[in-house]
Structure formats: C-alpha cells, structure tokens
Design a binder for these strands. Structure first.
Lengths: 156, 156
DNA sequence: GCAATTTATTTCAAGCTTAAAGTTTTATAT
DNA sequence: ATATAAAACTTTAAGCTTGAAATAAATTGC
C-alpha cells in the first residue's frame, strides 16, 4: 500500500497505482500528525473527533447506523466509540418511542462546547499542514477528488 | 475528519479543510474496498500486504526500524505484524553478526511467491477502483500530491 | 394472529495501532 | 575500564477496527 520512493513502477496502468500510493501516503502522514496533536492538546482521538464532528452537524441527533454509514466504519466500531463518549459525558443516547431498536445519539451541551474548541484548533492545523497547497490548487484538487468519488459512491 | 456532504463550510481557509476531508474520504473508501478484497480473495490484511510490499522491493532485507519508518507506523506495530508473518512462514528474521540488537527481515521464498500473486491482483483492483480517473489526470494528481509531500516530509 | 424475515444494534474474537516503559546491545566519555 | 548514554527492538495497556454471531424489535406474508 504505502509503497514508496525507490523503484518507481512503470508500464500500463501504473499511473493509477502510483496515484493511489501517493494518496495513501499523504493522508496517512496528515492523519498521523492530527492524531498526535489531538492527543497532546486535547487528550482525545481521531475516531472520537470524527464521531463528534458528525454529531455536531446533526443537532437533532443521528442513529447508530447513520453514523457508521457516514463515517465509513463498521457499526460495531461506532458502538464502542459512542460508549466511551457517553461515559465521558460528551454524548447522549436517547431512546425513541417509535422504534425501540434504535436510539438517537447526540452531543451533550458539554460535547458541543468541547467539540467547538477542538474543531477550531483542528481547522487551523489542517490549514497549516496543507499550507504548501495554494487555495486555488486546493480547490482544483478537491474537484478532482470529488468527481472521482461521485463515480464511486453507492456502487457495489 | 470524515465530515461530509451537508453544510459545506465556507470562509477563509476552508478550502484546505475541504480538500483534507475529500482526501481522507477517498483514501478510506478505497482502503476499505482493498482490505475487504484482500481478506476475501487471499485471506490476508492490508498491514501484512504493506509489510510484504516493502520487503519485496528490498531483497537484501530491511531492519525493523527501516520498516516502521517507511510504512509510517510505530515500531511496536511492525513487531506484531512481522511476528505473524514469520509464524505463517512468509517472512524470516536473520540475526546479524555485526549488531546483535538488530535483525534483517526479509521475505521467504514462499513469501515472494505469495506476494507476487497478491500484488498482481492488487494492481488490477486499484486500476479498477480508480478507473474513472484518466491516466493523464492520475499523473497530474500524483504530481500535486508529490509536491505537497516533498514540502512536508522530513520536517520537524 | 403468528411464523418468518428483515432491520437496528450490540457483543465477541482476532488483529491493528499507538505511546510509553522495559530489555539488550552498542557507542561515548571519562 | 567503566559508568553513561544512545540505539534497536519488544512488551504492555488501552483503544480502534472488522466481520461474524447474537439479540431484540419491527415488518411481512399467510
């Protein structure tokens, strides 16, 4: 996956493989840095941040299955992360009258406050880490990634 | 991190944040698909594949520290993955005379055979998954990611 | 109404991941 | 020589991750 620098592959179809390797290395590098800063500065983790970010933009709450679909992770995974956030008082599960299998998960007031602070720092870090990419280039790259993604999402 | 579709952020500096989110979602989507296929088709995992890919291009072997630096993961992590690969007979540790703290890690013959097969399938999958990106576009995107990375790597 | 199926979620086992602490070996500085 | 420090790994504890199995509630088909 994270194959790298040395013997650059060549031949038909290698361009996409090289793109994938670069994509993966770039995101892993940035991800590692963000993870480290989240830990050091806020004593939290990337998965917790991801869940809180999703909930922050859904004040009415989300179902567990919404969360796992949105975050591209398994549902069992979300259960554990939400459990921990609940035990820390940042997230609450609210049983629903209509369907007793499900519960709405949302940020607590403390969760909202906490996330707002972390998100501000996070945005600054991303700006810093991607600082060598011009705003214009960022928009173009984003466009390329978006069109790629839209062709991809919901296939299978 | 994997924030998404709904309320698109706007304002200064948001372009880089949006780029990061797209980058992350793209790599996670592809990664998830590759992981699943590695499991189903070859009963292996992405981390094992990564380690074997690194070793495949270093026939003389690599130190554990080389591996962890190259793969962007912690050294304790590599220990576990290599342990499992060794127990499966795909990788061998060779103690060195010079420095008895270290050992050269390399693929066994079976490891080489096994990896060659998996790698061929893997390259095809990546070509398929990135199929909507033209070869030309792939090269341009790669270039942008590379220049970004070179500015980043070896900082700190 | 009631069995069978589907849906939403949790639990579980195995493996991945990190940071921190521990071990062993080598290098450095008296 | 000998303490001290540095380097290369491994171990450990806690948390993340998946896929599969289990549970429970709602829906569907008779």
């Amino acid at each position: 996956m994270v194959a790298g620098p040395l013997p650059t592959p060549s031949g038909p179809g290698k361009d996409r493989l090289r793109l994938w390797i670069r994509l993966l290395r770039a995101s892993r590098t940035i991800e590692a840095e963000l993870r480290e800063r989240l830990k050091k500065e806020f004593n939290t983790t990337l998965p917790r941040f991801d869940v809180m970010a999703a909930l922050y933009r859904a004040p009415e709450g989300m179902l567990m299955s919404d969360l796992s679909r949105f975050l591209l992770v398994s549902n069992g995974n979300v259960t554990g992360i939400v459990d921990r956030l609940v035990s820390e008082g940042l997230v609450a599960r609210a049983r629903r009258n209509g369907d007793r299998r499900t519960s709405m998960v949302r940020l607590t007031e403390e969760g909202v406050r906490s996330f707002a602070m972390i998100a501000a720092a996070h945005e600054g870090w991303v700006g810093e880490l991607l600082g060598t990419v011009s705003e214009d280039e960022a928009r173009r790259l984003t466009g390329m990634l978006t069109s790629f993604r839209s062709n991809w999402e919901g296939r299978e």
